[in-house]
Design a protein around this nucleic acid. Structure first.
Lengths: 351, 351
DNA sequence: GTGACAATCTGTAACGTTTCAGGATATAGG
DNA sequence: CCTATATCCTGAAACGTTACAGATTGTCAC
């Protein structure tokens, strides 16, 4: 009797999770054949292929990620790079859910790679690229001239940015149309008689600062309203800073009668500042704000809102990265989310 | 001249990232020696050790994760298992930041493993364990008799729960003391003259439902106040449902003059419901709410709040899991976060 | 001088996968 | 009957790491 098989018997009867070797033993085929059969290689007979796949499914075979990764370099990982500073009413959970939605049912895992304020934003990217820790990367807080995007383009690693760059380089992105948002907001405010408008913009360093600003000023001249400068704060400032600054500007003789706010949390601060100055929302001043969940109307029903869907953003970003990894042209993986119209929950009548 | 070295020369002069082989070539040592030297093994000469470590640092050697994982089974991954349903004002970003904080500077990566409402919560856990995808797991939405905790205990995989179980089994957890929160809230409301209190509790299935409820009822009898039943909704219900239900109960003859709310988003709904019924916060009724970021006082300054720090929770959970992986006793890795006292921003005087 | 022993170091194998370079068999062409 | 070719399958090697089982020194006791 042939006892050279002893080793193989042992291996295959071991308890651990099944490997290609297990499958090979069970089907009586070679490891190579099994590997090929599982990925529908054409040089494997149709019947063999079905047989292998059946057995694999039956015993719940799952390729060992470490094995694949070591051999091929493919990590099956998408990394979401995040700044860990506390953003109040943060949208990152929504982005994560959006990404998750898309990669569920793919072999991809989502890893979250954090960096802190004190760090160079390039650090985590370098780490990921140098250690080959991910097949694709998603970044946010995108800048017009973004060193991270440039770096990844140079190394040829697929990525997508939340927000656009402005370097003449082509890469996948998803962005909310902040130009349209700001412009619509201004038009709406003008439509209800507001003439002196202030913009609480995103931080200057980020690309969408300019988008929002341009939409704001373009619409201002279109409707013939004027701007009250409000650029000493941005939505990155603290609630308290925005609140104080708002109160200050509202106490002036020439004060805004309308605000455009690029973030929901900041809007709370603006409203607080307005009320600190003894003025009333909806009567003395109106505020149009972006929001990512439908909460602002509970806060003050006079608030005017435009919705931004971060879960959608996450999903689009994930789709883009996977698309690039899958070989699609980066230029074809760009999307822009069109704002909803300005929504008024209920306006109190000015008296 | 010895040209048997040709192969080795080639390998070491390749461009890719350095491996043990590269280091071995550069130092003139064997791969095994290098591997040992890097982990301070005692059988390596002190000088050799320093030399290897110096070179490794110089050329920026980083162990290949796939190699380690394949050989040892160690993934250097912590998985955070999350339900992906849209939670408004979600705290998951804070938890993620807290976890990140702790695992920064360790070789660990954080992967987010989602599951959706429709799925068995055990599914993602089974996946992780069966595929050996993580060295440690963090779960939330913990139940008194939690199948996930039981499963992981059986398989011996380190984990920590956000919230406690009640199965007589010992495992690491971090929890906010919701008993103390609810009790304190009741005492505070009683202290300002409120006698008929309603509790908006966490969903019944979760362990901290009972904690909150017990704290609530114990304190009620302690201060001699009475409960207005409000258990047809929980903080898992939609804003609209909570709002409607609040308005209903506030229109009754015998209505609450105080609420204890276990979540900030739900509090917005409660307040909206109160005002729907034509009543005034701070005059007709007071509300004590948990909050995880300091926003509620902007919403209505009459709100009474207790802060819960989810970033801390994330950090503690990460520390617990790492501790367990590191061999600490699970029983020593449990922590309970004591609530801050009830904070009043500013109360309007009842008239 | 020799055996024992400690101190350092090293090669080989293995983890699970895919790729490379074939090998075996059958079919067809001449 | 032999060769060419297509079809289907296979073993060996490699990815980077660690564990195992030595190998090579030098030192010391006797």
């Amino acid at each position: 009797m042939d006892r050279q098989q002893t080793e193989k018997d042992d291996e295959a009867s071991e308890q651990g999770r099944p490997t290609l070797k297990t499958l090979a033993f069970m089907t009586g085929l070679g490891v190579t054949t099994v590997s090929r059969a599982l990925k529908d290689a054409p040089e494997i007979g149709a019947e063999t292929r079905r047989r292998v796949q059946l057995v694999a499914k039956q015993i719940g075979y799952r390729p060992n990620r470490a094995g694949v990764r070591l051999r091929t370099g493919k990590t099956n990982v998408i990394s979401l790079v995040l700044k860990t500073e506390h953003e109040i009413m943060s949208f990152v959970s929504d982005i994560i859910y959006g990404v998750s939605e898309v990669i569920a049912g793919t072999p991809y895992h989502l890893i979250v790679t954090p960096y802190s304020r004190s760090q160079d934003p390039l650090d985590p990217i370098r780490y990921l690229v140098e250690t080959g820790s991910a097949d694709g990367v998603i970044i946010s807080r995108t800048q017009p001239n973004d060193p991270r995007a440039r770096y990844m383009l140079e190394r040829g690693i697929p990525f997508a940015t939340h927000g656009r760059t402005d370097m003449g380089l082509i890469h996948p992105y998803h962005d909310f149309d902040n130009y349209a948002f700001a412009a619509e907001a201004v038009r709406h405010l003008a439509g209800i008689g507001r003439r002196r408008l202030a913009l609480l913009a995103p931080p200057v360093a980020l690309t969408y600062h300019r988008h929002a600003l341009n939409g704001f000023t373009d619409a201002l001249s279109e409707v013939g309203a004027s701007e009250i400068p409000f650029n000493t704060v941005s939505i990155d400032h603290s609630i308290e800073q925005i609140r104080m600054r708002t109160a200050q500007v509202m106490r002036r003789d020439v004060r805004p009668d309308g605000f455009v706010s690029s973030a929901a949390a900041a809007t709370l601060a603006i409203v607080a500042g307005i009320e600190d100055a003894g003025l009333k929302l909806g009567r003395d001043v109106d505020v149009v704000s972006k929001q990512s969940s439908d909460l602002l109307h509970l806060f003050r029903r006079e608030l005017l809102v435009v919705n931004e869907d971060f879960r959608l953003a996450g999903a689009e970003l994930a789709r883009s990265v996977l698309g690039w990894i899958g070989g699609a042209a980066p230029g074809s993986l760009q999307s822009l989310s069109v704002p909803t119209e300005v929504l008024a929950y209920r306006r109190s009548t000015p008296d």
